[in-house]
Design a protein around this nucleic acid. Sequence first.
RNA 1: GGGCUCGUGGUGUAGAGGCCUAACAUGCCUCCCUGUCACGGAGGAGAUCGCCGGUUCGAAUCCGGUCGGGCCCGCCA
Length: 436
Amino acid sequence: MRTLAREITEQVGQTVTVRGWIHKKRLLGGLTFINIRDRSGLVQATFENKDEVEKLRGLQIGTVLAVTGEVFEEPRAPGGAELRNPTLIVEVPVTEPPAIEIDKPIDHRPDSLDTLFEHRVLNIRNLQEQKIFKIRASLTRYIREFLHENEFVEIDTPKLLPGATEGGAEVFKLDYFGKTATLAQSPQFYKQIMVGAFERVYEIGHSYRAEPSATTRHLTELTMLDIEMGFVESHDEVLDMVADMTQAVLKRAYEEHGADLRSLNAPELKLPEDGKVPRFTINEIHEMYTKATNNDTTNEKDLTPDEERWIAEHARKKLGSDLVYAVDFPAVAGKFYHKFKDDGTVAWGDLLYRGLEIATVPLRENNYEKMIEQMRSAGLDVDDDGFKHYLQAFKYGLPQHGGCGFGVDRLVQKTIGLNNVKEATLFPRDINRLTP
RNA sequence: GGGCUCGUGGUGUAGAGGCCUAACAUGCCUCCCUGUCACGGAGGAGAUCGCCGGUUCGAAUCCGGUCGGGCCCGCCA
């Protein structure tokens, strides 16, 4: 029967067996301290018997042990209890010293990131590092729970596709039994198709972008939350749903992971008191930014990264919100499946979180004839096989709908305050890295 | 795709023409230490300074190339 590290305070006076990894050895002559790490945390064992300690000679951090001994209440021990004079069994000896020091905080400076990822297998055993990915796991769990409560159905769509029909980002091509296949750059078509069945759907999955972007916010394999909801009355309804979800998820993360977030030096969470995420049109932001900085951006079709940071700072300082929407992009920025408005804009909002775009939240065109028209004017061949099944969904009845593509890696990055999106990813893939 | 930067023991850094037979911290090895928790103390091993070429009496240091990182822009989540 195995006892977990966090449970031993309730087992004082009993003999228990703890199994885990050696996390730290401290030899003080007649007394030896060993910290054992398991999934629940650390527990300390003390040894006066030199023969027991001698079993560990030549064995390194990471050695897998079973330690059996009596639990004593001990205020000097971390956690208030410890195992005294236990017997230990080496289950998996480790003789090679780890290439990096796993019991110490890992340096996340940009120049060190390559080393960090090269040694990720060991680095992820660091307790501080593990917090990032436990928070990440919670964030996606909160998202799932929120969407489940709002009657969204989770779906999984193919990542292997016959061709690049969606347009926009560069795609990866690969051999598929003699044919050329591509990796999905998003679940765009499939989630829209699924609106025709379930009304409300979402997917948390990988998307692949072959963009040669070497920045702190790009991955070639990214985790996206894709949401699509049918029977919406307006673009506002979609914007509100995504804003409500994001706020609920962040509030919960700060409630349930407050201590972890503080220890990772995460920024304090600021959300609008009335629950309404501030919105500005692209033109408003261009004008405000141009006025404030004397950099004329009024002719840009999108926000520049500096504008994103500027409006985020404005929203945080003046409006008390880490979240802000940029809405009403110029029509030229839209794609063929977007809903265009009469005023020369497209019903599309970008959700910015602490200065970074984390989601695009557009309304879709749902009218079959209009779709055909918009595809033709985008220069697409509507008879292409890649569009056949997609257009079927429209032909056979698709209600007005909208949704979002939401960067999960970026959400984690910005929640914790990491400089690089790769730090929020277990095994990041970028233009230069395909391992581990 | 464009621009700017950085490569020194396992890891993180210092050194910026000769003081370098390359320094410091940490990790590793040996020994001492009964309340450590970044334990402490003594000693030891470990680097042809990314690679190739050039300048120079002399190159870790200057120049060119190359390979590998990082950051920014474009584009995007």
